[in-house]
């Protein structure tokens, strides 16, 4: 086993142990661990893997290290679709729910991409701005819908904030399967993703049709994001941070990045969720808030570093 793989697997194991132990009774009550914390740990692993994978795919296919399902509006699209499903009475375990959430994610992502390309040559910053605009509009729609549906809005608001309070095993199982399939399919095209990381024109001349690869990788990233959102609502920055952290310890090629980002994302979110349970005991902080507290400064640092590199 390579040293880098060992580091990622050790981080994942440590995050799982932390998640199983985190809480008032720590490791003293096996039934709490088995029936409460284990399902939650599995949910965190699935959500983190889905978002980490989606971040790696977006950053590769768009040749843009600022890409992430949260920043591109993918998560906002999935969340908006999920909220409208809740309000329409569609169960989270229904195939219709997963289909609607995927359509929301895919539609929002392509709309951001289309907006960013309107000006001709797409810039990194233009894509981020388009994603911010789409996310803001969809978030406003969600808030409008929640304001109109007062009696159910409180529980849905917790979903929108992003957290793993209520874990439905069936949703975790289906989402976990979707994320695993997406990771497998993405890995089967790793070289196309590497070619896209050189830009669309170069990818074409290496033999990868950029229009086709864009649709394929967008679809896989959106499916992984929507599966994650179905479990945990809007949790930002996992997809942004994970690939950058993975690149510090391993090669940037998608061949290593795809599995490493999925495992790394799983470790990061599992640790964040566990930290949220113990930092302000007995109160609990949603994983989405913990990730935003860590991720927003990380995003600022990335912008600062890129600005420095261009000067």
């Amino acid at each position: 086993m390579g040293k880098n793989k060992a580091v990622i697997l050790a981080a994942l194991a440590a995050a799982c142990l932390f998640s199983l132990a985190a809480g008032p009774a720590w490791l003293s009550d096996p039934s709490v661990i088995l029936y409460l914390r284990l399902p939650r740990t599995l949910a965190a692993l699935a959500v983190g893997a889905g978002l980490g994978l989606a971040g790696a795919l977006f950053q590769g296919v768009l040749k843009n290290p600022l890409s992430d399902p949260y920043i591109l509006g993918t998560s906002a699209g999935a969340t908006a679709a999920a909220v409208f499903c809740f309000l329409a009475g569609i169960e989270r375990t229904s195939p219709l729910f997963f289909a609607a959430v995927f359509c929301g994610a895919f539609g929002a992502t392509f709309f951001s991409y289309w907006l960013a390309r309107l000006a001709g040559r797409m810039s990194d910053a233009g894509l981020v701005l388009a994603g911010v605009a789409v996310s803001a509009f969809l978030s406003a729609l969600v808030m409008l819908a929640l304001s109109a549906a007062r009696e159910r809005s409180f529980s849905i608001l917790y979903f929108v904030m992003g957290g793993l309070y209520t874990v439905e095993p069936e949703v975790v199982a289906v989402s976990g399967a979707i994320i695993t399939v997406c990771a497998g399919l993405a890995f089967s095209r790793w070289r196309a993703l590497d070619a896209m990381a050189l830009g669309e024109e170069k990818a074409y001349h290496l033999g990868a049709d950029p229009a086709r690869e864009r649709v394929i990788f967008f679809a896989l990233a959106c499916a992984a994001t929507s599966a994650a959102v179905a479990i945990g609502g809007t949790i930002g920055f996992v997809g942004l941070m994970t690939p950058h952290m993975i690149r510090l310890i391993t090669r940037p090629s998608a061949r290593t990045m795809i599995p490493a980002a999925a495992l790394g994302g799983a470790a990061i979110l599992t640790a964040a969720d566990a930290a949220g349970r113990v930092i302000f005991l007995p109160a609990e902080v949603p994983a989405g808030v913990i990730m935003a507290l860590a991720g927003a400064p990380f995003f600022m640092w990335l912008l600062w570093r890129r600005a420095g590199a261009k000067q």
């Binding site: 843009n64 290290p65 590497d194 070619a195 990381a197 050189l198 830009g199 290496l206 690149r247 090669r251």
Partner: peptide
């Protein structure tokens, strides 16, 4: 590319097709 591919990795990508 914003990513730190090595020269060898970059040249090997010429084998994509």
């Amino acid at each position: 590319t914003p990513y730190d591919f090595t020269v060898r990795e970059m040249v090997l990508l010429g084998r994509t097709a």
